[in-house]
């Protein structure tokens, strides 16, 4: 099987699910696929999905790498708030765009470094280590914004939220470029394989001479970097840093995107592209609910029901059942069949 075929087979469940969700929306709302060009940019509900899904997509990139190492990063939502606050603060303090963006990105990298050090050097379990920043991060963001929504009118910074490039909204350009770039880096170098190796068996990887510590730190730093980009976009979108609400609960959506993307929470094999499609599935569900015109009381129930269906359909048990028409537990047994014969 060629590499391309293998790749398509890997992301097929996600693509089918996305197509299914989009088809469902277009049944509920017939004008869904209408795309036009207004003010020099593409305009339409599918573009909204790409655009509104940008923060979760960016977070999912870093989250995928972290989860591949058998970790988890609960702090990304709070890191978004910090970096959004830093960018708003920077621009309102009169720093130029470059310095402002640099400060915001550095803030994200520092947050990632902090998580990485807690996990790799102090050996704290990732869920606990990142919980610290999840809780404290929003407080830090509030200190920066002094409790209010820190608004700004700098057109250059706003461009990152509502500008457009090649007729695509800027956030879409950012997440697609970041996603492809990081995919390219991890797959063109040996990083991807080393990350998977560490996630599957940390001890054996270390014994094979892999610098596991540095690798672990690197994935958390990457996660911080992605959260910084998401934070900048979220702040630029509303022209203000909202320390309380920016990125609130998005860490959970990012984890969900990774899971829908088929990467196991137990680490190992990962696919960034599948996670990005997962993020788009989540956003398609959100946008679909908004377009449907149901009363808002139904939002969460509908979302939960759709996601439950997606996860059940993608579950290994059902997939094996459909693929082989046999008892579903067989692959599990086959996987464990490592006993010497």
């Amino acid at each position: 099987m060629s590499g391309t075929a293998r790749f398509l087979r890997r992301i097929a469940p996600q693509l089918i699910t996305l197509a299914f969700v989009l088809a469902l929306i277009s049944v509920m709302f017939p004008g869904f696929f209408n795309i036009s060009i207004a003010n020099g940019r593409l305009y339409g509900s599918p573009i909204d999905i790409l655009n509104r899904g940008a923060p979760v997509a960016l977070l999912a990139i870093g989250m995928t790498l972290v989860i591949a190492t058998r970790g988890i990063d609960l702090s990304v939502g709070a890191v978004m708030a910090i970096c959004g606050a830093v960018s708003a603060w920077g621009i309102t303090q009169g720093y130029d765009l470059g310095s402002t963006l640099l400060m915001a990105v550095v803030a994200g990298l520092v947050c990632g470094l902090w998580n990485g050090i807690l996990v790799s050097f102090l050996g704290i379990q990732p869920i606990v280590a990142t919980l610290i920043l999840m809780v404290a991060g929003r407080g830090i963001a509030q200190l920066i914004t002094e409790g209010a929504i820190l608004t700004f009118n700098d057109p250059n910074l706003i461009f990152f939220g509502s500008g457009s490039l090649f007729t695509l909204p800027m956030p879409v350009v950012i997440w697609i470029v970041t996603g492809l770039l990081i995919t390219w880096i991890v797959r063109r170098t040996a990083l991807g394989m080393l990350i998977e190796s560490v996630g599957i068996n940390l001890r054996a990887s270390t014994l094979a001479g892999i610098n596991s510590r540095v690798l672990l730190i690197a994935v958390y730093v990457t996660s911080g970097f992605c959260a910084a980009l998401a934070g900048i976009i979220a702040a630029a979108d509303i022209r203000g840093a909202d320390a309380n609400n920016a990125g609130l609960w998005l860490e959970l959506d990012a984890i969900l995107a990774v899971v829908i993307g088929g990467t196991s929470l137990l680490g190992g094999r990962f696919s960034l592209i599948a996670s990005l499609i997962g993020a788009m599935i989540i956003q398609a569900v959100n946008t679909g609910i908004l377009l449907s015109g149901f009363p808002p009381e139904f939002n969460l129930v509908i979302k939960a029901a759709i996601i439950l269906i997606i996860l059940v359909v993608q579950s290994p048990a059902l997939r094996t059942g459909m693929a082989f028409f046999r008892k579903p537990r067989q692959t599990d047994v086959a996987k464990k069949e490592t006993v010497t014969q």
Partner: peptide
Amino acid sequence: TRTKGKEVMES
């Protein structure tokens, strides 16, 4: 929130 206000208005 502003973010959700904007997103919902878009829809």
